[in-house]
Design a protein around this nucleic acid. Sequence first.
DNA 1: TCTTGACTTGACGTTCACGTTAAGTATGCG
DNA 2: CGCATACTTAACGTGAACGTCAAGTCAAGA
Lengths: 172, 172
Amino acid sequence: MTATVDTVREEETDAALWPIGQVAREVGLTARAIRYYQEYGLLRPAVSVKGAGRLFDASDVQRLREIKRLREDVGFSLAEIAELLDTDDTRARLRQRFHGTTDTGVRETVLREAIALAEQRLALIERKLTLVAAVRDEEAARLGQLREALAAAATATKPEAQEGKGTDGDNA
Amino acid sequence: MTATVDTVREEETDAALWPIGQVAREVGLTARAIRYYQEYGLLRPAVSVKGAGRLFDASDVQRLREIKRLREDVGFSLAEIAELLDTDDTRARLRQRFHGTTDTGVRETVLREAIALAEQRLALIERKLTLVAAVRDEEAARLGQLREALAAAATATKPEAQEGKGTDGDNA
DNA sequence: TCTTGACTTGACGTTCACGTTAAGTATGCG
DNA sequence: CGCATACTTAACGTGAACGTCAAGTCAAGA
């Protein structure tokens, strides 16, 4: 729905392309960061059409969203992300090989390679997930011990009065 | 003030205090990092006994292990960790109030405060966990789509041989 | 036309989380 | 006694991931 072009009226046949500022606002990154990602190689060098600056299409925006999540949510470094998001030319090669043929055999091969890459990515993320989950479990256990201690202290204080009120804490 | 100076004997079994280098090797951090954490306020300033340098006890080592996991595994910043690991004097106050009395009523109060802190920590970590899990699910979905595409290509190639295989991805 | 606004390419500045000397101090050992 | 070893503080250096400022380009609008 955000695909409507309101800045570039000249060439209406264009697939939707946006300048950097608009993209930045849309995905919640700064223009500087986006340029940096391009320098770094996370994003394709971008097409600079005449005086319009860099223009980004929907796939660029999608990729920027991925990058942002992997940075801010997961906490991967740009180097790790570079490994995770198979480099742009890798992606391009696969696409080209896929669309450059109608041979389903070739397409299968390409798909298998893409799947292998995706599996590696998934494995890395799941590794991270289990690490965080381990810390979570540890914290939960610690909390459980505290609650046990509280329960013990409570029964020591009022050993008879544990009818009406639950002596162990709430679960929130 | 936890331990008296006299515990700095030789290699007796008494030694509940270790110098920084030993601690560093044990937990897998550099001495510099540990000093930095002390400067930063994550760790108590440490007792420096005469020529023995800083000495660390078991609770310090434990705390360093926590810090390391929160940094390297979870990816929290030192600022976040500072919030997570309630400051050292907070912890000390709670301990002192707990052990400084035999009144179970006071102890209950202290425990409830400690539990509240632990719950906040747990909530933060679980927030992180859900973020990572979301990315994981996304990647898994992408992989599922690729597998569907592969299945489609396969059936296009050899339409008769699709007996044993389901076309949808798995749910991790 | 002149101005405004969004963009460009540098280039230097900044924060974080330490690494890396430098220079000094205390202890154990031959 | 000298030397090696492990520590100390103080200060400067570093890589990552940008922030920020300068100077210029370009197209649209009052």
